[in-house]
């Protein structure tokens, strides 16, 4: 479309950039506003003047890291998300491969199950899983969260990995078979090592989903020492006496690792999802 571009008038070019700049500003503004506020003293956060930088201080960060349970919640979230991620990928890898390579009875219904689980509202599993966890005495544990997150993570990982395995040429499997490898050896020794980028991206996304989850965490956790970030941060801003001077720095500290992981992985997500969706 280079020919089209050369004809673009100065006015059109200005409009194009103006639109993109306005849109980009809106896209980053709420994050910048939280970031700017996190450096303001508490009384300046409540001020009704619009100032981006106002008596900047690191006091809020110090307070959140030393005077609140934020570090505990952060660790709880890391542990929960990490176990969900490992369990999800570990369970899903071989199934993703089988769904990508073999036509077996039950394959079609399995694929449909994955699709339908993506439609499940939080509301449908949370009550039964809660009652099961209560019977098992697992309420208020991180284990119960990992188990609940796996209901989403396992089908999602299978779907993503199937999409990735689809992009690895089948000729490799055939070559491995000619060399006398059985299907399991082909999978573990030939295909799985090649699928490392796909595994990494899938793991990152599973991690992020668990990192950002709040419904199960709010329902299952009861004591402050067990909270994850998704629940803990809510306690900073109850209906009355909202402590935005705690919330803003915590939000930034939660966001930074998530955004870094996301930016690394995002290029592969859409193609992975699309591949899983279209190649059957």
């Amino acid at each position: 479309m280079a020919a089209v571009d050369q004809r673009r008038s100065k006015g059109a070019s200005f409009l194009l950039h103006a639109t993109l700049i306005v849109a980009s500003t809106i896209a980053v503004f709420p994050v910048l506003w939280i970031l700017a506020s996190s450096f303001k003293p508490a009384n300046r956060i409540r001020s009704s003047e619009i100032k981006f930088i106002d008596q900047p201080t690191l006091e809020n960060y110090r307070a959140v890291l030393t005077e609140t349970e934020f570090p505990v919640w952060f660790m709880n979230s890391v542990v929960t998300a990490a176990f969900t991620m490992l369990f999800g990928v570990f369970m899903a890898a071989s199934a993703g491969y089988a769904l990508s390579r073999f036509n077996f009875p039950g394959r079609r219904s399995l694929m449909w199950t994955f699709l339908i689980t993506q439609m499940f509202p939080v509301a449908i599993l949370i009550v039964p899983i809660y009652t099961i966890m209560a019977n098992l005495g697992l309420i208020n544990t991180l284990t119960s969260l990992v188990i609940a997150y796996c209901t989403v993570a396992v089908p999602f990982c299978t779907w993503m990995l199937k999409g990735y395995f689809d992009t690895i040429p089948r000729e490799l499997d055939e070559a491995a078979a000619l060399d006398g490898l059985g299907p399991f050896q082909t999978f573990y020794r030939v295909i799985l090592p090649l699928a490392r980028p796909g595994l990494a991206v899938t793991m990152f996304y599973t991690f992020l989903t668990a990192w950002s989850e709040i419904a199960y965490a709010t329902a299952f956790l009861q004591t402050k020492d067990k909270f994850t970030l998704g629940y803990g941060l809510q306690t900073f801003v109850p209906q009355f006496n909202q402590r935005w001077e705690y919330l803003t720095p915590s939000a930034i500290l939660v966001l930074i690792p998530a955004a870094l992981i996301f930016m690394y992985a995002q290029r592969h997500l859409v193609s992975g999802l699309a591949a899983g969706a279209t190649k059957g």
Binding site: L20, A23, S24, A27, V28, P30, V31, W33, I34, S37, L208, W211, S212, I214, G230, L233, V237, W244, L247, T248, A251, V254, L255, A258, A259, F262, M263, Q266
Partner: peptide, 18 residues
């Protein structure tokens, strides 16, 4: 432009509530 996607949804919710 993809920054909002990278922000965990509950953090975005807090930002707009703010």
């Amino acid at each position: 432009l993809i920054v909002p996607w990278a922000v965990p949804a509950f953090i975005a919710a807090f930002a707009w509530k703010f």
